[in-house]
Computed example of a mutant assay.
Amino acid sequence: MAKKNRPKQELERLREIAEDYYIRLNKTGREIAEILDVSEQTVSNWKKGRTGEKPWDDRKKEIQLTPVKLKELLMEESYKIVKGETSNVNADQLSKFMAAIDRLDKSVNPRIAMSVLQMRDNFMAEVAPERAIEDLEYNKQFLQHLIALES
């Protein structure tokens, strides 16, 4: 049974957790409701997003459409062409897409790098706390460098 009359701060924290479960961990609304002890309707409302925010489904698609996934889809279309089947993408478009994917493969998204560095920081804090502190400044400089490259 979902709890009622939770403080706004607690609901906001649960909403952030729910969003992470939905987008990153691919949990269903029902699973999230059960885990966080909220109603499915609450999760459904959260998924719609606030005014000015993209719905969670849109954000999930954006995150899941990685260069690797795009490359897989484009390779499937290429295979159709090779087999003489009709592709959903014409050869010129396919060529342009593949060139764009190759460029993406050679770049690193700062958000992904930050996530990986945070996991590494947590690991290092457990096994070598002194080293973790030393590395923190270099990690920050590296992220700033990646952000500058994107501009």
Score class of each variant (00 low, 15 high):
66 T>G: 07
76 E>T: 05
53 E>N: 13
102 D>W: 05
93 Q>D: 12
84 G>V: 01
74 L>Y: 15
77 E>R: 13
60 K>D: 01
97 F>A: 15
83 K>H: 05
58 D>S: 15
80 K>H: 12
104 L>F: 13
101 I>C: 11
53 E>T: 08
55 P>F: 06
88 N>M: 02
95 S>D: 01
48 K>T: 03
65 L>R: 11
88 N>E: 07
83 K>M: 12
86 T>H: 07
92 D>K: 14
46 W>H: 02
86 T>D: 12
49 G>K: 00
87 S>H: 07
76 E>A: 14
80 K>R: 15
91 A>Y: 09
88 N>T: 06
73 L>H: 05
85 E>L: 06
61 K>D: 01
104 L>S: 11
63 I>H: 15
67 P>W: 13
44 S>A: 12
43 V>N: 04
76 E>L: 08
46 W>I: 01
74 L>N: 15
71 K>T: 00
52 G>H: 06
78 S>D: 07
78 S>P: 02
79 Y>C: 05
104 L>Q: 14
85 E>I: 00
51 T>K: 15
98 M>N: 11
86 T>M: 04
92 D>M: 07
54 K>N: 10
56 W>R: 10
70 L>V: 12
53 E>Y: 07
74 L>P: 09
71 K>A: 02
95 S>F: 01
74 L>M: 15
46 W>V: 00
64 Q>Y: 03
60 K>S: 11
61 K>S: 02
61 K>R: 11
45 N>Q: 08
99 A>N: 10
68 V>H: 11
57 D>K: 03
52 G>K: 04
76 E>H: 08
74 L>K: 13
59 R>D: 09
97 F>C: 10
46 W>C: 00
66 T>N: 06
85 E>K: 14
46 W>S: 01
65 L>I: 07
43 V>W: 03
74 L>S: 13
71 K>S: 05
100 A>R: 04
87 S>W: 02
60 K>A: 09
90 N>R: 05
49 G>H: 00
68 V>P: 01
78 S>H: 10
91 A>T: 07
89 V>Q: 06
89 V>P: 03
43 V>F: 06
58 D>Q: 11
103 R>L: 07
92 D>S: 13
94 L>P: 03
73 L>Y: 04
44 S>G: 06
72 E>R: 15
99 A>W: 09
53 E>R: 06
50 R>V: 02
102 D>A: 14
98 M>S: 14
68 V>F: 08
75 M>L: 10
51 T>W: 05
64 Q>K: 14
72 E>T: 13
77 E>K: 11
83 K>Q: 12
70 L>K: 15
59 R>G: 02
60 K>C: 05
50 R>F: 01
59 R>C: 05
75 M>I: 02
70 L>H: 09
89 V>A: 03
67 P>V: 02
103 R>E: 09
91 A>W: 08
45 N>E: 06
67 P>K: 13
78 S>E: 11
88 N>P: 03
